[in-house]
Design a protein around this nucleic acid. Structure first.
Length: 270
DNA sequence: CCCGGAACCTGAAGGC
DNA sequence: TGCCTTCAGGTTCCGG
């Protein structure tokens, strides 16, 4: 499941392949992969545009085109990219093909069909609704403290709310809470100042470590060159139900919080 | 407005 | 072996 570290990895790997390339056309094999605008308008606006820069904001991949148009891609659950010159489709799960100059093709592969392409103008976009980037200066201890003020909501739920902090998903929320020694069901308002400071550091620590590892490859995610990330090898709790905690040996538990599988060590997290 | 649950989807895994 | 059910979870939508 692509979260911030996975999208950051994709951005880094696609940048040298795409920047300076001209888009000839985009072909959607699953029409609902295109969120907006209409297919006709989308193709009219992207055809002939040069990809000038790639960015990331939260879990969005941003392709800045010459002119004012910006192509946003959200991978949701199972989206990934492959880049190549091969004429045949890499898998039956290919949902879109971006035809670039020089015969290069970028394939968008997404078994579950949740991923979305969206063309927006300038800053008029869903990016405006996102909270601060956790790795940026805007994400301060004070900000996290404000996020945790809400009463009656589990800290796990607060961490994955994109309008509060951008880019943290299910896996890294669990990992950050383990690192900070905080139980996922604790209410945000119950955290002490030392706990908030610890959680702030843990969020950055867990995310930066995952970025260094090239993101995690669970489910169907892989890199644009087909390789897999290694961050899942460093997971302490995520997807480790009934396995032993690496620190205390206790069995990792799995509970459901807001319809999401949540993993934690009942001994290390209080 | 807030919160919980359903919908969107398919493949993998588990039960019988 | 095979069919059926359940699960996975990011985001949006809808109902209470």
């Amino acid at each position: 499941m692509p979260e911030l570290p996975e999208v950051e990895t994709i951005k880094k790997q696609l940048t040298p392949l795409l920047v300076g390339r001209r888009i000839q056309s985009v072909q959607f094999l699953w029409a609902r992969t295109l969120l907006s605008p209409s297919m006709d308008e989308f193709n009219r606006r992207v055809a002939g545009r040069v990809i000038e820069k790639l960015d990331r904001r939260g879990k969005y991949l941003i392709l800045r085109l010459d002119g004012a148009d910006v192509l946003l891609v959200h991978l949701r659950m199972t989206g990934s990219f492959l880049v190549g010159e091969d004429g045949t489709l890499p898998t039956k799960h290919t949902r879109a093909v971006v035809h670039l100059d020089g015969g290069l093709k970028m394939f968008f592969i997404d078994p579950r069909k949740f991923g979305k392409f969206q063309l927006v103008l300038g800053d008029d976009s869903p990016l405006l609704k996102l909270g601060p980037e956790p790795m940026s200066d805007a994400f301060t201890v004070r900000h996290l403290e404000a996020v945790m003020q809400s009463k009656g909501i589990p800290v796990k739920v607060l961490l994955v709310e994109q309008s509060l902090i951008a880019g943290i998903g299910n896996m890294y929320a669990d990992e950050a809470l383990y690192d900070a020694g905080i139980h996922p069901l604790r209410q945000g308002g119950s955290l002490s100042m030392p706990e908030i400071e610890r959680l702030h550091g843990s969020i950055r620590h867990v995310l930066s470590k995952a970025i260094e590892s090239g993101g995690a490859s669970v489910s169907n995610y892989f890199h644009p060159d087909g390789a897999k990330g290694k961050a899942q090898d460093g997971f302490m709790v995520a997807h480790r139900m009934d396995e032993n905690c690496f620190v205390c040996g206790e069995a990792i538990e799995r509970i459901v919080v807001r319809q999401r599988g949540t993993y934690f060590c009942p001994n290390c997290q209080r």
